[in-house]
Amino acid sequence: MNLFRLAGDMTHLVSVVVLLLKIHTIKSCAGVSLKTQELYALVFAARYLDLFVHFVSLYNTVMKLVFLASSFTIVWYMRRHKIVRRTYDKEHDTFRHHFIVLPCLVLGLLLNEKFTFREVMWAFSIYLEAVAILPQLVLLQRTRNIDNLTAQYVFFLGAYRVLYIFNWIYRYFTEPHFVHWISWIAGIVQTLLYGDFFYYYILSWKNNVKLELPA
């Protein structure tokens, strides 16, 4: 495993820890999109079907379990926890996330590395992950007071995607057969979605003012 990949996984992990920290200790999910969290839970459930079939490494298995458990825990908190759910900004989290699941599934059926159940689900999860951040970005635009933890959560999530692209470039040149067009193209699309956010995040950090996204 190269350094970019490890750093990418770690920033992904940090983003989840930051979000859980906010939800668990502050008992608030203000500014967090339940729609995005539900999509991530679905992404991991679809992608990690191989958990029971292929063993890659202990690292791989543990990380998969962590991402599965954390994504479902976050959804549980936002839907069921009696204090946390009251802080959910339902009025502004209006992105119609169900409507992006079906196109991703169709895309997974049409564009995959092999037409098998697991490969279709893998491709589906890649396409869905690429757009899963959209409800969260829309909610951020509509949130007046974006708290630091929410902004950091999205920042680390975006950093993870950027680092994965460096990881692919590195692997492309160091591993002779490493070609995954589906994840590369979807990954680049996903990273581009963060462009605007990064711009305003860095600007707010430089000027030492609270993050605000223009509508």
């Binding site: 992904h12 490494s57 998969k64």
Partner: peptide, 10 residues
């Protein structure tokens, strides 16, 4: 076959 390898990324 390029797609035969086990997918090792998260």
């Amino acid at each position: 076959d390029l797609s035969q390898d086990v997918k090792d990324e998260l």
